[in-house]
Design a protein around this nucleic acid. Structure first.
Lengths: 348, 348
DNA sequence: TTTGGCACTCGACCCTTGCAAGTGCCAATT
DNA sequence: AATTGGCACTTGCAAGGGTCGAGTGCCAAA
């Protein structure tokens, strides 16, 4: 009978098929799925009893589990992982969804607007919570540095990057300064750093003090120190969040764990760790349940993607939801949005 | 017996006393409160039966209601209103709370930092969701306007206010411009608007075009238009939110209404309407349940206060929570934080 | 290797019952 | 007139008990 009358699957192939069916059904219905329901909904050519054997094996191997002795099976984190890695095909977005991405993002005015639109778009498309990291400074180049005197011993430092991002800091100077000194400093800094990327700025600015008289060195040092700390500390600091309300719909399911989840979504430090360091824009990354235990979100899955103009990603964006999420759909949405935003950010 | 052996309350006074007791007990226990429990916990010198009569009267007048025919009484919005207006005394903050406010806010670096610390502080003190509006531009004065050429026909407009706020916009010019023109424009704009408040800027900038040659007028107009729209549109736009997780603790109580609430807390437009227009920093304002029905938050109460350096408030901050909240404590916390932040923002 | 049958488990649901809290009313008291 | 104790009534809630159904594991047969 093996390899017989029709295109027959080998045993292991069918087991994987069963796992896929379990994941799909469970994600759709939110209820433990049993052997009978499985053969009804998917046309596997075998009887429930056969499925039961396969399920027992899958449970043995840790891919599924049963919440109660006599209930259906539920995928484990390990099961979802296998599903994502080997069993799912990327689900292409529907034309309306594609249109939504375009119309939603094309009207963006500046960088802030791009980010805020993106995060709301992601939340809406996936019906989950979305997180978007502002493009990091480290990979951008400096467009302009502006110094503005606020008081005799206070200067506002404004840093403008080629991605249109503006960072500001107030510096208290060790001694009073005049417009001439500040003007000269502004000119020299700009001559040194305009067009440079972050790493270069660090080395170039260091030598700056030598070109000024000893009496001004402290002032120069204060300004450059602030400039550098702005670059470093605000490095990848800011994130935008939207769609937390979508998680409340799953509320019952997270049970009483909703509060720490919402708290975590307000903690930008946690979110940044969650988004991880961006590598290259293309691949979408999935972390499932216990895989992000360090961040205290072991009940959730996270789907992220880097984005940015070139081949290198400037930052990350992603979606946070229950482990029982529609992985193919979410992966497709995050990937599509990340690609589109990257295109928008490309130099024009 | 009236006015007899001890300090006796008149009937109406006792009814109010009963209402106060009901509100306090209900807020503390979250459970409908009955006549027996009332005389046990508060030493009113009368029997449960008497209290029952008073409660019947209070219900008649709409201050309390019973969820089920034979359950205890629960305050209505009208009851809370009376409680807040006439029955509650401001509960002074505990010394640890005062210390927390100081240590938490004193380390703030710049305006962004003040706002983000404030909102987290409020959320922590009240154990509810907190909202803080960034100081509005309209009451601030202009410290400096900076123009930076990004490309021959693109200029970045940066607006710096005396509160340390920085707003930015990119302008596409109708024609190429050179550094000379931009430099002159920068000088003229700053001469006109530095130190002026928003209302003055609007009139002063209008005449600017006349001082330039006809060929440059379109360029000048583009820049000034952006400057004005920045002042107007970003008017009171930004808000910070924290503590949404605290609302999840009340989760059961909001029942399935948690999702729209979380969504509303992400809609800055709604929040701004909620905070309302700030008048003067001092009085704390309370909106209870149905009183803010327009914003779709009729199940919640909102406690707000204006804040800002002078007698006029620059912006508002507040707290959103269930109608069954600890009003005296919340009012005290919001008031104290608003006063402290105002002090920090005062010119130094 | 697959299949049908069968006994077993266990949560979900429904119904009943008892309980406790709370109310409203009334007659008695001060 | 206000207050009080008593009493009957309502009603949600929790506990107990029985049934049902979905699902499993195992085993013998094909």
């Amino acid at each position: 009978m093996r390899g017989g009358r029709c295109t027959r699957l080998s045993v292991d192939d069918r087991k994987l098929d069963v796992l896929r069916a379990i994941v799909e059904d469970y994600v759709a219905t939110q209820e433990p799925v049993g052997s009978k329901a499985l053969v009804d909904r998917h046309h596997l050519g075998v009887s429930p009893a056969t499925i039961r054997n396969d399920m027992a094996a899958l449970e043995e191997e840790g891919y599924i589990a049963q919440p109660h002795t006599s209930a259906g099976r539920v995928p484990t984190d390990k099961g979802y992982r296998l599903f994502v890695d080997r069993l799912s095909t990327v689900k292409p977005l529907s034309p309306p969804e594609r249109r939504a991405i375009q119309t939603f993002l094309d009207g963006a005015l500046d960088l802030d607007d791009v980010v805020s639109r993106t995060v709301r778009l992601l939340a809406q498309l996936t019906r989950q919570a979305a997180v978007v990291q502002y493009p990091s400074l480290s990979r951008s180049t400096v467009r302009h540095v502006e110094l503005v005197m606020l008081a005799p011993a206070r200067v506002l430092v404004v840093l403008i990057t080629d991605t249109g991002r503006v960072e500001q800091r107030v510096v208290d100077l060790p001694a009073d300064a005049d417009d001439v000194l500040v003007g000269e400093l502004r000119a020299r800094i700009n001559a040194l750093v305009t067009g440079q990327d972050f790493a270069s700025v660090e080395t170039r600015v260091a030598e700056l003090g030598e070109r000024f008289g000893p009496e001004d060195r402290a002032t120069v040092a204060a300004v450059t120190a602030t400039l550098l700390s702005t670059l470093i500390e605000r490095h990848e600091e800011r994130v935008a969040v939207a769609g937390t309300g979508n998680l409340a719909r799953y509320g019952q399911e997270f049970d009483h764990e909703l509060e720490p989840l919402l708290s975590a979504l307000e903690e930008h430090v946690v979110l940044l760790r969650l988004l991880g360091e961006a590598t290259s824009p293309t691949p979408v990354r999935v972390r499932i349940g216990s895989e992000n235990a360090q961040t205290g979100l072991s009940a959730t899955s996270v789907v992220t993607s880097g984005y940015g103009p070139g081949e290198l990603a400037l930052a990350s964006m992603g979606v946070v939801g229950p482990t029982r999420m529609d992985y193919p759909g979410t992966i497709a949405a995050v990937g599509a949005v990340a690609r589109y935003v990257s295109k928008i950010l490309a130099p024009h």
